[in-house]
Amino acid sequence: MQPIRRLFQSRSLHKPSPGTAIISYILLGIWAFIVLFPLYWLVVTSLKLPIQVIEGPFYLPWIDFDPSTHAWTYIFVDVWNDTVRPYINTIIVAIVSSVLALLFGGSAAYGLTRFTYRPRLAAIFTFLGLLVLSIVAINLGLDWRLALVVAVAVFLLLLQPISKRFQRSLGNNDIAFWLISQRILPPVAVVIPIYVLFQRMGLLDTLTALIVTYMAVNLPIVVWLMRDYFQSIPLELEESAKVDGASPYRVFWSITLPLAVPGMVATFLFVLVFAWNEYLLALFLSTADAQTMPLLVAAQNATRGPQWWYMSVLILIMIIPVIILAIVLERFISRGLLVGAVKG
């Protein structure tokens, strides 16, 4: 028993004992295999001829089967023009929407951790009441522009007296919860209204529509994650800057933000991955010019069944940029969330 015990005795705090290390490596290896095998299978499938995919499992190129680059040539040569445009679209949409979401969401999160908000319940109910009224009015045949102007005017008129009379209000946490609750409704339920909205604005099949939508969809997550990071940044630095007469914006921009960069990088990656991969909204908001890559992947399932070989190529070329990004940002992620997670 004694030697075995010693095997598991750790000598320092973080350096695991040899026994623990071996078990750890085994477990890590198993999970790494589980993670990598599907990716390996994609690579192998992309090198197979259709008949080799259909006939049964072949595992090793050159040994099991003769690899062919037909799928790669098809995607990169035959339909290159149809591939490169969605690819560029995806990159633009994902990056721009994520940066914007980070900008707006980050400042909102900062606001929610540094200021106290007291939205009056009465004002919210007035807003909702007027909204319902104006919708009814539009349904009854009122011009929507007129309805909008009247509603805004009445809202502004009523705001002061009503807020004075009814004092109950909500707090920061309620705002945050309201934001995250906007993500609960499944996309199926919102896609037609959003389609109509952009159609009326004449923005269908433009990158703008996709950028705006993804930004709005991602804002709640950015606010929630960034709130944690800002909360864990010590207030003393900001307070001393304020005593020196710096404006809130200067404090935010030159003191808080630099401290939160790691957290922002991590959040950026989460949000980017979402915008990179979104399918249903992209399907409806784009027809030809603004198509993105997930549409192309899904489209490989045609009337003759999925074309695994093309699909594998597309999935692989889609993840390569994100993997590179992940490798570059990995160090930031762990340190980034580190800051946020001190208090949770």
């Binding site: 399907l283 027809t287 489209a299 399932n301």
Partner: peptide, 24 residues
Amino acid sequence: NVVTVPFSDLYQQILTDVATNTNS
């Protein structure tokens, strides 16, 4: 110009397009 939509969503997308008068 031939534009394409994934098969499973063709019906919905054309109908949405014409019903909302987008007429792409």
